[in-house]
Design a binder for these strands. Structure first.
Lengths: 262, 262
DNA sequence: TAGTGGTCTAGACCACAGC
DNA sequence: CTGTGGTCTAGACCACTAT
């Protein structure tokens, strides 16, 4: 394995800066400068031990720091590679416009129409008691139930998003909202058909590290955070008629919002 | 150190699940269930070695996994603690409303008016050539310069946000935009005074792990991502008159956007 | 001074990828 | 088969915190 870093492999033992951090910094610099690009292989651990004259743990410490930063991805039996940056997907805030529903597109389809081939490979639907948070978002009284729709979305066969939608039971009972396929235009279209014309969406965005379960289901490399997006839909009477929690792989998405300066 | 996990400290050596991961999972469960709460101290490394009958590296591996997930924070010479969750700050999308400027509040002040005492402790201002990305966002021709304002914002004395704003030089030259204190209402107020009435904002949001420099400047514990927010301000003529890149500690913020269902 | 986490060494055995 | 990263052991010295 030839690496620009390998040749200049030198660390100061008594500089006060830990050796493993010096090694990590050399690779950080190489990646920043473009010397190493997406998919490039780093020298193996044993090569790095030789080149820097350190123990294996020191090398692994350096590599795990880079892994935690999301810069490199180790592959068992193969090597450590500079992380490939999948193309970024842009979600514009008009993605729930009525014109999309009128063309028969559900929310996720409208979002991703130009981004790839969308599909759902995990789906659960149930009537249940909402969590306190969901109850607050929907403005429900205690003991009222909701219809919960949980699903995993794929784009071109790769998992990109986990979503959980909740609709108050009195609005969803017996409708296509309780079916796997909620019909053309999705659940928003069904809600409007039953007289709840949508007036406003409120979205909340935050980010954090994924839970182990989310890392598995979204097939995330370590060192990559998730974006949490919660949307609440209000009808023209000001009632919250639906809320969706989504977990997206950060770095695969950019969210865009436009708003007037008033 | 008494810990609920410590007493049930048991791992299966040949279950196929790595021992360090089993140890980590026990603490994850304890934190999830509320058995361990913010600020609680975990058993020390040597206690964990005894309780689980493993080597120190195995214990440290478990702890570093929890650290990378942002669940715990090690403190040198003191111990490992369940991470304190600072209060979440909500930023509503009306935070740039003209009414705030008319009250003399600059953007950050309007954002954070109810959240704490805002201040700036690092400031740089320079005329320079923009990066390709900034030039695109502002729709500038090559070789046009911008005024760059870089600063670090504090809330109640704690760093919460890094911001870099860019204004085309022809709009900023000689104005208060080049001063540290851009005056009442901030740079948006100055732009409107010079005839560029603001019409629309476009914000882009993404998230990633911080660079080492960002981690230092924002005093972030490891295992906590940052939210990147880029805003472009357009005037009534449709010209991009300003753009700001901000880096926020995720987990300290929730962003909120409201938009009509159209 | 005793206890904590931070760094580092020098080994070992394993599962997995690729030839 | 060889080389890779994944896991684990058993030590060592250090800087820092608290008492």
């Amino acid at each position: 394995m030839e690496s620009p870093v390998a040749k200049s492999g030198a660390v100061e033992r008594d500089s006060g800066v830990p050796v493993f951090r010096q090694i990590a910094e050399q690779f950080r610099a190489a990646i920043r400068s473009g010397e190493l690009v997406s998919g490039d292989q780093l020298p193996s651990e044993s090569q790095l031990m030789d080149e820097f004259g350190v123990a294996r743990m020191t090398v692994r410490n350096a590599l795990s720091e880079l892994t935690a930063e999301g810069l490199v991805v180790p592959e068992r039996g193969r090597g450590v590679f500079v992380r490939a940056r999948p193309p970024v997907r842009r979600l514009a805030s008009d993605r729930f416009a009525r014109r999309h529903r009128e063309r028969g597109l559900a929310a996720f389809s409208a979002e991703t129409e130009h981004l790839g081939e969308a599909s759902v490979d995990q789906f659960e639907c149930a009537r249940e008691h909402p969590t306190a948070r969901t109850r607050d978002l929907l403005g429900l009284r205690p003991r009222m139930k909701v219809v919960a729709r949980r699903r995993r979305y794929l784009l071109d066969g790769e998992p990109v998003e986990l979503a959980e939608s909740y609709v108050p039971l009195d609005l969803a009972a017996g409708t296509a909202i309780e079916q796997r396929d909620a019909g053309p235009g999705g659940i928003y279209a069904r809600l409007e058909e039953s007289g709840h014309i949508l007036a406003e969406f409120v979205e909340e965005i935050s980010a954090r590290m994924p839970t182990p379960e989310e890392r598995l289901r979204l097939e995330l490399p370590s060192g990559t955070p998730v974006i949490l997006l919660t949307r609440v839909a209000y009808d023209t009477a000001g009632r919250a008629v639906e809320t969706t929690d989504t977990v997206k792989a950060a770095g695969r998405y950019v969210l865009e919002y436009r708003f007037p300066a008033e």
